[in-house]
């Protein structure tokens, strides 16, 4: 079954064609990073405007790369949320029209479920049940996944998403945009144990996260040690040490909660997904820690971790197989907690 996936939840206009939820025939992404860079973050109105411009070319590219025509598409999967409503609506409206004209099923996808199912687009796939950590600029969610379309939310961030913390720290240090990628690269030259930033593990019985305290700790550190930014040569601790220490604190909490979740649920497999899953330190450390505990880790390739439509198409396939289908009164949802 050939599914067209459409994803416009934030600042990437994406379309993909995936066969039977497994075989990626095309996976096109038009990034808007250059538009939002000077604002230091995604500007919702500009993102929405750009989606309107990019959506048709991106879908056409996805079809031509897959060497198929619109007539061969058997279903349309589209991200319904969570995300920026104005952005989501562009993809949703186009998807509905296509499904209507072609008389093919339409299926709405939760962006976070899509991220988890990206793991099924790899050669080696997890088997149910497993624990999944979706970590990105907008989300830090921990799931127990017992089947396709059966995700139980175990925990989530109570304030900043992990990726958001990366972006804010990068902004504070004037490192540029997008912050996560820059901090990842810079931190490779730094000492992750240079500064002992606080790790918020929260109450014993919760799988929730909190990163705003850590962000504040970094702000305070920079305030107390202004030389680190202004006169780095006179400071014994470099900016790379600072970002590596910050990153280590984030990674420690993410890994510890995820491992704890896997152990509590008695599962042997972990899926790491979402944009921050491209972080090299997080990938390496999680693999190490999991190996020591006899857990197997599945991390999609970086292009399947960042926002993409292949994951949406795959998720759509499995949802359609399980009888989920959306009607034309589908609307965008901005917050994850508003999903039914």
């Amino acid at each position: 079954m050939m599914i067209l996936g459409i994803e416009t939840s934030c600042d990437e206009t994406a379309a993909a064609v995936v066969e039977d939820g497994r075989k990626i025939l095309s996976n096109m992404v038009a990034s808007q990073i250059s538009i939002h860079r000077k604002y230091g973050g995604v500007v919702p109105e500009l993102a929405s405007r750009k989606h309107v411009e990019s959506i048709v070319p991106v879908i056409n590219e996805a079809l031509s790369k897959a060497r198929i025509t619109m007539d061969e598409i058997e279903g349309v999967a589209v991200t319904r949320g969570p995300g920026l409503v104005g952005s989501l609506l562009v993809g949703i409206c186009v998807a509905k029209s296509i499904a209507y004209v072609k008389k093919i099923p339409l299926v709405a996808i939760n962006h976070l479920e899509g991220h988890v199912l990206a793991a099924f687009l790899e050669k080696e796939i997890p088997s149910f049940p497993f624990v999944a950590l979706v970590v990105s600029g907008g989300h830090t969610n921990l799931y127990y996944v017992s089947d396709f379309a059966a995700l139980e939310l175990m925990g989530q961030t109570r304030d900043d998403a992990a990726g958001e913390a990366f972006d804010k720290v990068a902004k504070l240090l004037h490192l540029g945009y997008p912050g996560g990628v820059i901090i990842d690269a810079l931190s490779k030259e730094g000492n992750p144990n240079a500064i002992n930033f606080p790790r918020a593990y929260m109450e014993k019985d919760t799988f929730d996260f909190s990163f705003s305290g850590l962000k504040t700790a970094v702000v305070n550190y920079v305030k107390q040690n202004p030389n680190i930014v202004e006169h780095p040569e006179s400071h014994t601790i470099s900016v790379a040490d600072l970002t590596a220490s910050f990153q280590e604190a984030v990674v420690d909490v993410l890994i510890s909660k995820t491992i704890k979740a896997a152990e509590e649920k008695g599962v042997g497999q972990i899926v790491l997904a979402g944009g921050v899953a491209s972080n090299s330190r997080l990938r390496a450390r999680l693999k190490d820690v999991a190996r020591d505990r006899g857990l197997k880790v599945y991390i999609p390739a970086p292009e399947l971790c960042t926002d993409n439509a292949a994951m949406v198409a795959a998720c759509g396939y499995y949802r359609l197989k399980r009888g989920f289908q959306s009607s034309f009164d589908l609307d965008a949802i901005s917050r994850n907690r508003d999903f039914d």
Binding site: V52, I55, V56, I59, N60, M70, L89, V90, G91, C93, V94, A95, K96, S97, I98, Y100, V101, K102
Partner: peptide, 11 residues
């Protein structure tokens, strides 16, 4: 505009 784009693309 997005709805019309989808209609045009598919038809």
């Amino acid at each position: 505009v997005s709805t019309v784009k989808g209609l045009a693309l598919a038809s």
